[in-house]
Amino acid sequence: MILDNLTVRNTQDEQQLIDKTLQREINIARNIQTKLLNGKTPTFEGGEVSGNTLPARLIGGDYYDFYPLVNGKIRIVIGDVMGKGIPAAMLMILTRGAFRSAAESTQGPGETLTAMNQAIYEDLRTLRSFVTLFCADWDPQTGIFSYANAGHHLPLFIRGKSHEINELPKVKGIMVGGLPNQEYEEESVKLDSLDTIFFYTDGIIEAMNQEGEQYQLKRLIQTLIRHIEKDVGELEKCVMDSIIEFTEGLPQKDDITMVLLKINDQQADITSFNSPRL
């Protein structure tokens, strides 16, 4: 086939136009995701929550959300959709819809995960994908933190007074999208003044430096202990700074997400009871 100069130029122009349109759509998608993820964070007496996510690409598949319940509790979820970029972001939105819908109609975190699995199992199975999720209810009145797990890393539980740091006690549960009709067990712990729960996705502990070494849980624990006196926003920043320092500017390979719940000395009291508005 012989192409003259004009045909070549037209083809290049068309390709540039397609690239430009695609870039604009990706930017809009990023904007939508950022706005949905970074909605209003609920405030309550006696403690604070915060969440932050940094996608490895323009958009990502990590997810976190807060949902104040009418009984005064706050439901928290963190999740990681298989894969990265646009495909993972699309499934993250699916997951968000399932959580928001399930959170309103279910009694506890275990039931929420069961309902979410029921709602999106078929879609995930068809798409050969899955999502790991950890869901918890925090009750500021009683100090009880109850939780259920669907294949996600267990959050870290930092005792505020002793600075003792451990994973939350194990609770069984497989990824959402793995098998139908799953029941998710619940566990609970009592949180005292100054205790912190640190939820995270694997992008943190698997962040890699120039030598191919991973950040690992041990560095995360060291960072948290070093800065545990700080408020949730500062603590979040310290963890992020520590990862950036460790990776020495190497491009991020996976989405990084963290959620913090920190109890202070006062009696907790959620100020916003009107779900789903935060």
Binding site: D80, M82, G83, K84, R125, R128, F130, T132, G178, D202
Partner: peptide, 14 residues
């Protein structure tokens, strides 16, 4: 192995 890799093992299972 990352989550996409686990997805490939899930493919093998299916």
């Amino acid at each position: 192995i990352d989550s996409t890799g686990i997805g490939s093992i899930m493919n093998a299972i299916y």
